[in-house]
Design a protein around this nucleic acid. Structure first.
Lengths: 345, 345
DNA sequence: GAAGCTTCTGGAATCGATTACATCGATGTG
DNA sequence: CACATCGATGTAATCGATTCCAGAAGCTTC
């Protein structure tokens, strides 16, 4: 592959001049510029990003470490992150932690070794020493969706508290009193916050959340199935199961279906994180929707602000309840195209 | 961030010795080794992958350019690719083309600029000059899922011909005669092949595939909706709609639902590419399943073979029909956990 | 016509690693 | 004892860019 030296030779100038042309430095004669551009064209030359990064100490690359690519929520997040980053002149390298701290560490390490300019993380756990050290050492970093308390890193996330309260109100209005939750890992903020919000909202209606109705999941479908089976085995099973993410809701649906039970007649179901398929499941699932695209874009902007020396800001969006039929009430007319719509930018 | 020089100074040796220790070169004294390792530990030193790549001309990185991350099929593909690559000591950088040739080009260019060791592509179109040039110039490359005819690049894919024949047999047995298809872009192999296979299988039953029953989609949900609306507007609408991918099936479902029609009573639906959610849609959707994980892993192995100087081989897997209720017949008992199962490696 | 300014250009240092080659002391061999 | 061999180490070149610095050429200006 042609290097800058080849271009310089072909154009009859020095490598310094070639570099100047490539970087649009003002003091290059028109003549030299055209000769260089012609040589670039002739040789099909493309600058070596590796060499450039070594010299400039910038990779124009962001790392994004997410907890699970297979989760449509994170997929959409990743897409919007890449989109915004591209618009700002950055590439994105995605690391999929699969909810495993060791894998998360692997990716963080690999990304730091590559000297990415900044890191976007949705932590799987309380934060490994590696990540905390990096943050302390000044690696530009922003938490998105989930965060780690006590670390001085901007957070871009959605607050579901209000929406959870709306959900509990909705359930209460439908007459449900025995509400159960499939929680996420307590080590994640989204894992603990959603239970907290649920418990608090229930308290407002004087409903307790007994331990038996609090199942420990790990944000994966399989755990949703397991926990739901546990609920169904109880002497007095809950009337509603609220899954703290969409994959656990899928698992719950599997478990309910395996018993031959029906939603919402035998048991109601709701989920955190809305996805297009929820419109077409049997029945359509009531969910709490996050402005995922906004989240991703805001996170990138905050990170790039930090990288480029501007003060980054934490941002919190609001989530909102989307009522469908899985909790009992006939759904209101849903504007048909909305949940499938995608930004086509 | 500490460099190899700092480590050398700290350990009281030359950078060459440090490098030797790091690369497990045999001729290093035990004494020097321990001093270097201590210095590495003390400084928290991590080798700069950028500098290393520049010198060795290897990045230990694969590029993966897929057509659409939001499509669960490609998400799963990406996941298995990363998994296998990691096992073989490589990282993966994903580029999402969003079914747009210009974006595909952007990512191919960026990846080549970064001097990735090899490229895995599921082409969105017939192949831009850039990609073809790269292949011709000797960049290790493997096509996965989709490919470009006439280019000397190994292909790892699934052959759906047999499964499509099974599908048509299934539909015929149920009494359906007016079969329509929402095709993918003709520029993609999967776009044209699936229509071809469908047409041929129908021919075996003496059923024609009129133009009015062949809708042109682009593998996105919106096109599935649009095409399906066209079908429903026909004086004699089809009895079955077969969507060439899962997102277009989602769009079709939207369109059917918006008209207040029911599946399969008013119109039957089937899709190419099976996803976990198809078990829980209303009704569960009959689909053709690809061994997606196998595909990803085999593609990585072929690419790494090529990179490391071994002869790479094309591989073709078989797809299989998964019958559910969306075409009319009561579904056979489906082993409950299977479609949600994930490789936990 | 000399001095002082621009404008353009090239030489060379530099980023952080790897690695060919040279060196040096210790050991083995005839 | 002289010489070859071997293990351990350091020096320096190198990868492909960017960029500081110095110098050449062309203009102004007095």
């Amino acid at each position: 592959m042609a290097s800058i030296k080849d271009v310089a030779a072909e154009a009859g100038v020095s490598v310094a001049t070639v570099s100047r042309v490539l970087n649009e430095h003002p003091s290059v004669s028109a003549d030299a510029r055209t000769r260089v551009l012609a040589a670039v064209e002739a040789l099909g030359y493309r600058p070596n990003a590796v060499a450039r990064s070594l010299r400039t100490d910038q990779t124009h690359t962001l790392g994004l470490v997410i907890s699970d690519v297979l989760n449509p929520y994170f997929t959409e997040l990743a897409r919007s992150v890449e989109e915004e980053a591209r618009a700002l002149g950055y590439s994105v390298i995605i690391g999929n932690a699969d909810e495993r701290p060791d894998l998360q560490d692997h990716h963080v390490r690999t990304l730091l070794d590559r000297r990415i300019d900044g890191l976007l993380v949705s932590p799987t756990d309380g934060g490994s020493p590696l990540m905390l050290d990096a943050a302390r050492a000044g690696t530009p970093m922003v938490f998105v969706d989930r965060w780690i308390p006590g670390v001085d890193v901007p957070v871009v996330r959605a607050d579901g508290r209000e929406a959870v309260r709306d959900l509990v109100a909705h359930l209460h209005r439908l007459g449900h009193r025995r509400l159960a939750i499939i929680a996420g890992p307590a080590a994640t903020t989204t894992g603990s916050e959603r239970v907290e919000a649920f418990r608090e909202a229930m308290a407002e209606y004087g409903i307790p959340l007994p331990d038996a109705y609090t199942g420990q999941g790990d944000f994966q479908a399989e755990s949703g199935r397991r926990v739901t089976e546990g609920f169904l085995d109880l002497p007095e099973p809950p009337e509603v199961v609220f899954a703290a993410d969409n994959l656990m809701a899928l698992g719950a649906l599997d478990a309910i279906r395996a018993r031959g039970l029906r939603v919402p007649d035998d048991i109601a179901l709701a989920a955190f994180d809305d996805i297009p398929w929820f419109v077409h499941t049997d029945p359509p699932i009531t969910a709490i929707a996050q402005p995922t695209g906004e989240l991703g874009r805001a996170a990138v902007r905050a990170l790039v602000d930090r990288i480029e020396g501007r003060p980054p800001a934490s941002v919190t969006f609001a989530a909102r309840l989307v009522v469908r039929r899985s909790c009992g009430e006939p759904a209101p007319q849903e504007p048909s195209p909305s949940p499938v719509q995608r930004s086509t930018s």
